[in-house]
Design a protein around this nucleic acid. Sequence first.
DNA 1: CTGTTAGCGCCTTCAA
DNA 2: TTGAAGGCGCTAACAG
Lengths: 397, 397
Amino acid sequence: MAVTLADVAARAGVSSATVSRVLSGDYPVAGTTRSRVLRAVAELEYVVDGPASALAAASSDLLGILVNDIADPFFGIVAGAVQGELDSGTDDRVPRRLAVVCNTGGSPERELTYLTLLQRQRAAAIVLTGGAVEDPAHRASLAARLRRLAAGGTRIVLCGRPPLDPLEPDATAMPGPDAEAAAVPGPDCEPDARPVAAARGRSARRAARGAVLTVAFDNRGGAHALTAHLLALGHRHIGYVAGPSERTTTRHRLAGHRAALAAHGAAGPDRAERLTVHAGGYDRSCGYRGAVELLRRAPETTAVLAANDTVALGVCAALRDAGLRVPQDVSVAGFDDLPFSADAAPGLTTVRLPLQEAGAVAGQLALGTRPAPPGGTTTMPHALVVRASTAVPRAGA
Amino acid sequence: MAVTLADVAARAGVSSATVSRVLSGDYPVAGTTRSRVLRAVAELEYVVDGPASALAAASSDLLGILVNDIADPFFGIVAGAVQGELDSGTDDRVPRRLAVVCNTGGSPERELTYLTLLQRQRAAAIVLTGGAVEDPAHRASLAARLRRLAAGGTRIVLCGRPPLDPLEPDATAMPGPDAEAAAVPGPDCEPDARPVAAARGRSARRAARGAVLTVAFDNRGGAHALTAHLLALGHRHIGYVAGPSERTTTRHRLAGHRAALAAHGAAGPDRAERLTVHAGGYDRSCGYRGAVELLRRAPETTAVLAANDTVALGVCAALRDAGLRVPQDVSVAGFDDLPFSADAAPGLTTVRLPLQEAGAVAGQLALGTRPAPPGGTTTMPHALVVRASTAVPRAGA
DNA sequence: CTGTTAGCGCCTTCAA
DNA sequence: TTGAAGGCGCTAACAG
């Protein structure tokens, strides 16, 4: 049906192997032959058959990107940056690799499902972005799955979620470097993760092969900085509209928040608990509902931290609808610094995460363009961005 | 390296053909055999080799989605909806198809490039979303390319851009139905497109095969409604911060705007021209710069229409920075009704486009789940959403 | 530098 | 209902 290598070969008067070599580029071919082949290719409008080529070469040029919500700019920015790396490396007009963006909707099952689909396509690399679901069963099966894929040669990169748990000593028969790579805790590891001292130091070079690499955000540190900012302004009744409770992102940000409160000698755990509302998701309506609930529970609240910028907008809307002004009556802060945050009215105080950069790094790691970092984990810096949505609490408070 | 069909067959004590049949499902196999095979599959953690299967079956389960900017929620929402259709149809836990989201960045070359990549992967269908570039050369080569793909059996769906131009009578040797399908003008066709009367009526059923289908937005109508709304409020100096000039979306929205002005006997073409600023893109900063330029050219402006909601936010920011209040001093309206628009302060008056629905329809068309519409084009309705960013002009104006 | 020759892993007739 | 066998289009040795 379609035109094949053999057709081109016949037209150019060469063997199909020669055509293949011309097309793949990385093999010496005489100039005249090459141009003759290229002409035939053009005349016949030949397009390589990806599946056949992948089968024969036992490799593919697909890069998978898993996102929790493709409609959320957070993921769009990261995914776009990952994809951008595909086009950069090559000088050719046509990038060789294809990025496959898969929308899991935050569902663990779909995450696993898409992993299967990508494995089926023999994806060269897979980048998992955004917070991970914390359910122990899923956590374990996902980790096992990823390790197996990595061991099979698929490059695996986690972007925006903590590294895989360290392996149990006997969990793998192969003396692979995965264990060490995963064992050095990044900032988003469990606070109580015991550093495996013996594992350090010898893995940096080997980590690139078979290891699960990580590009982490400092969610904990960001939330800490944000809370410290509010405390410094004089706030003592700080509410927190958190994301879904079973997500790593949620827990780490909350932990940073609580740590800052504790360091300040501010609230006891039960009060902090009362001032924390778990929204069901990361969208605007969750923020709205969360704020309503928070005001009901704790009308004395003078500041609200939100799970992210989108949620923060919902919080602002709820406050406005309740007749409260931001920041005169209540301060509000978000997280991520998405593009619209600067344009909200008032401009949103937030923590900027370098999404673009993180995506680019993840992409390079996935392509093998960038050496694996020591320990397997790169941590991106955060920056507190103070805008107009936070101010000193009103006098009466 | 990986476990193959033959391995499973050996384990289950059957032939590889039987395993293949069990896995593909659509073939009679004895119950006991089937369960034995499935057990072997599970024990070996067998995963089908996509490329091999695509090669042998001469078909693939990849669906391509081209977007102009994956970080823009407009595209995220549409792409997410398209992808959602893949998971719905099947009752299985594992959807068979994989969506490939490709980010063109609005570049014609990359659009063509990704088309090649998808063709190479033998994608079953391709959905092109968002406004198209209007450069005649690109337009022609893209159309030719899409028609060829469609003729080759790839389902092609345009979502959010106008249908392909009608074919020249002799442009194709095959008596394919494409010509008719593309010939019935949707609302976003050229105003002067001559309806090919003879073509009507006989194509609806056949359009599904080999035709390029379209899901269109009524950009023209939406802009008309928005402008009429401002005119009704009493505005007479209405500025327009348009998108990049060479995009279909830009031109159609602008045309609707101008038509409304003309119908109202409002502005002469030269004045309308002076009040129109072309931003270089669809992002916030373009809106900001566009508004600054507009204020410079026409300080008497009392209302500004923006290319879309994101641009509108930039416009609002520029106005605020210029000491102007929205809507007291200047009214602002956007387009699309993205989620954040409701939360802007003031809430943005805009035109709601059913992005989710359009994406779903496009997905169904691409999967063949939904019959092709008569004429090949489905037009989605728009709705004017009036919020707080538009009001009557200030008294002095 | 170029041609020849085997497969890659699976699907799909064709027989049994 | 199941098995055997050929080939999908390409790449990667291995010769020449």
